[in-house]
Design a protein around this nucleic acid. Structure first.
Lengths: 227, 227
DNA sequence: TAGAATAAGTGAACAGCGTTTATTTTTTGT
DNA sequence: ACAAAAAATAAACGCTGTTCACTTATTCTA
């Protein structure tokens, strides 16, 4: 079960535990999400309108509101589902038993790669409207996919310090700074057209080279230096 | 003269070089920009509508279109003007004769600080719609404020390599990676509420501490290490 | 200075948006 | 079969960016 299912299923009245009615309802809800996912992937949030969505699933626009409180909630569902896939992908990429710094670098690359594969999702995940506020709803944040990603990264960096591979520093600072380094490349590549491509007066290079180089530099910045 | 003046003054017919008419026209145009700037600063692009803008400058909505081709062009004007201020601020901060790495770190801090002082401007500057495409219009990009920022950073990093303070590497990669590192913190702090604040289970710290730490780590990642 | 040309400004409309309300249709439970 | 409840809808509200025909004001020329 995805976090999305928890967060946005706003029951209309007391729904029976599991009835044909409820199964049918879920089916329609999933169809809406699937259509939204399709449109969103191709055209982003701008191309995703309630009216169009209703058209694609053969319902009236108003019907959508029986399944989602509003558009924001629907987009959050897409966003959270993606973030969960991202998290799973990174955790999967980290399952090998290589040296810590190799694992760390690999995570950076996988993170950015996944973001680039779903640019609209990734970009939408970081727009202010759809974020929960930690100080007002800290548990909500901690349990959300992005909150879990943060905690996961913090755990990894803590391990690096424990192993002596990373320079000791306050984790609150280190995690934010490291995350910023990763996020920066992903979001810049997504939101700035041709950021990835070399300019006419620059020698060519492969995107993978930039990812590797960036992962190197970031990791380097946090590495413990023996005197 | 700002780049904004060049880019978006779409003359309606052959305007005389400098007549009372043209001066009056510029005045109105500036009033529009000023009102837009005011609304935009406080409420971002979402709060800035043509109708509201027209209301604030006591014109009809259609009148705005005599001065700007469309809303995008107006926002680009705001964006470019901001980016120019940002660039000037960084260049100013770099005018001291301290060691290279100190200067570099200082630039990072000033960059992020300025972004945080004008969050709506900075965030808007990196939305896909308003960016020119380097490969289709490279000169346009190179002369644009963001293009100049890129070239400025590249020049600075090149200097660092020449001085032997930074590890030699392809400038195309280094500049992108470094920029991503800076941009990441700025945009994350802006777009993710309470990213800057420590979470309830984390020890407190000052924002300035995070900026300094981040600048340290980024610079560290590119530093040349003597064996 | 009168009249034509040009620019500035406007009201009304178009097509789209998210969302709500009252109403109708369908399904469920008795 | 009938009443209660849920699902679905048509129509509207208020908002958006933008365009077009039209009027008003200014500028230039004869």
């Amino acid at each position: 079960m995805t976090a999305a299912d928890d967060i946005d299923s706003h029951d209309t009245g007391p729904a029976p535990a599991d009835s044909p009615a409820e199964r049918r309802r879920r089916k329609i809800r999933d169809a809406i999400i699937e259509a939204a996912e399709r449109v969103f992937s191709n055209e982003g949030e701008a191309g995703l309108s309630i009216r169009r969505l209703a058209d694609e699933v053969d319902y009236s626009p108003a019907a959508i509101y029986k399944y989602f409180r509003n558009k924001d909630e629907l987009v959050i569902a897409l966003k959270d589902a993606f973030f969960e896939r991202l998290l799973a992908k990174i955790a999967g990429a980290d399952n090998c038993d290589r040296p810590f710094l190799d694992r760390l670098r690999n995570c950076v690359v996988v993170y950015v790669q996944t973001a680039l594969e779903h640019p609209n999702h990734y970009a939408a995940a970081f727009l202010t409207t759809s974020q929960s506020r930690p100080d007002e709803d800290y548990d909500g944040f901690r349990l959300s996919p992005s909150g879990q990603a943060y905690q996961w990264l913090r755990g990894m960096l803590e391990e690096g310090m424990r192993l002596g591979d990373l320079a000791p520093a306050p984790l609150a600072l280190t995690t934010r700074s490291f995350w910023a380094g990763i996020h920066g490349l992903a979001i810049l590549a997504i939101q700035m057209p041709n950021f990835l491509q070399p300019f006419p007066d620059e020698p060519t290079y492969k995107t993978a080279d930039l990812l590797d180089y960036h992962a190197d530099c970031i990791a380097n910045g946090f590495v413990r230096r023996e005197k």
